[in-house]
Simulated scan of single mutants.
Amino acid sequence: MNTTRITALNYTTREYFLQIYDHRHIIKSLVRRDLKIKYSQSVLGWSWAFIQPVTALIIYSIFFRYVFDFQFDKYPYALYVLSGILPWHMFSQNLHQSSGVLLSEQELIRKIAFPKFILLLAKSIVSLIELSFGLILLLIYLTIQSRISWYILLLPAVILINHLVSMIIPIWISQFSVKKRDLLHLIPYLVNFGIWLTPIFYTIENTPKFLSTIIYANPMTGVILTYRLVLFGDPFPLEALISPAVCIGLFLLPGIALFKNFDKKIVDHI
């Protein structure tokens, strides 16, 4: 009897994702719409995809390098910061855009019947496209400097992990914020505090042991350290993989299952 229930659940989940695939044209339309709204009517256009992470790079590089006199001699410190800023920027943008998407797209949800998970996917794809621009610039620089190694072949897998981790919090908040909209007010705090618990500007080796344990518990730590492994060949502590793996298994996958069940009830709550 237990086997029958599990099989039915897997079948239902599989069918749900097949519905998403069948509605992929909606995903494309939403991605095009969001990119057009975000960039086409601005003076600098697509340049903003570069300006935002580069601005953060300049500010934090100056702050840590010259104000705190942070010593880093493995390779240019700007590259170290950029390799952390880009995946964090994707995470924070997806957190901002996806968490309240069920509320911001109320009219579309009422008019058209489609799997609502598509809305989260579309937002995450937009942040993924923005990540790609920064990574292309970084890869061009590394190629010119002859710093590319065979590790670079793992980059697509790292980007996928980055994408999955970036969806963990939005997939939960987007559901519960439909009923409890106070949850959306947590997002700025998560971003503002989370960035300091992520080794973007500093190295874990330079932090106290009790704090390094907290930093390793942050799934974005593992993501960023993996980027630095494939981009620069930095040493990679295996414990950095634990948090992303646990979060994807315990939070993302159940979150998707819960979202699938909540999908039918969304219209009744908005």
Rank of each mutant, 00 (worst) to 15 (best):
V54G: 00
V54R: 00
A56K: 05
A56E: 04
I58R: 03
I58S: 04
I62Y: 09
I62Q: 07
V67F: 15
F68T: 09
F68H: 10
D69E: 14
D69M: 04
Q71W: 00
Q71L: 09
Q71G: 04
K74W: 11
K74F: 12
Y75D: 12
Y77V: 12
Y80S: 06
S83H: 05
S83W: 01
G84V: 05
I85M: 02
P87W: 00
H89T: 14
M90C: 07
H96F: 14
H96C: 06
Q97A: 14
Q97M: 12
S99A: 14
S99E: 12
V101I: 15
V101S: 10
L102P: 01
L102Q: 03
L102W: 03
L102S: 03
S104R: 13
E105K: 14
I109R: 08
I109L: 03
F114C: 09
P115F: 09
P115C: 00
I118P: 03
I118Y: 03
L119I: 04
L119F: 07
L120C: 04
L121E: 00
A122N: 01
A122P: 00
K123E: 09
K123Y: 00
S124G: 13
V126Y: 01
V126F: 04
V126A: 05
L128E: 08
L128S: 15
I129M: 11
F133A: 12
F133N: 02
I136H: 06
I136S: 08
I136F: 12
L137A: 14
L139I: 15
L139K: 01
L139A: 09
I140T: 08
Y141D: 01
T143F: 12
I144T: 07
I144F: 11
Q145E: 15
Y151D: 02
L154Q: 09
A157Q: 08
A157M: 14
V158G: 11
I159R: 01
L160E: 08
I161K: 06
N162S: 14
H163D: 03
L164W: 03
L164Q: 09
L164P: 07
L164I: 10
I168F: 10
I168G: 06
I169T: 14
P170F: 12
I171C: 11
W172K: 02
I173C: 04
I173K: 02
I173S: 01
I173Q: 01
Q175E: 07
Q175A: 00
S177P: 03
S177G: 08
V178Y: 05
V178R: 00
D182M: 01
L183W: 05
L186I: 06
I187A: 08
Y189C: 06
V191C: 07
V191S: 12
I195A: 06
I195C: 05
I195V: 15
I195S: 11
W196K: 09
W196A: 04
W196P: 07
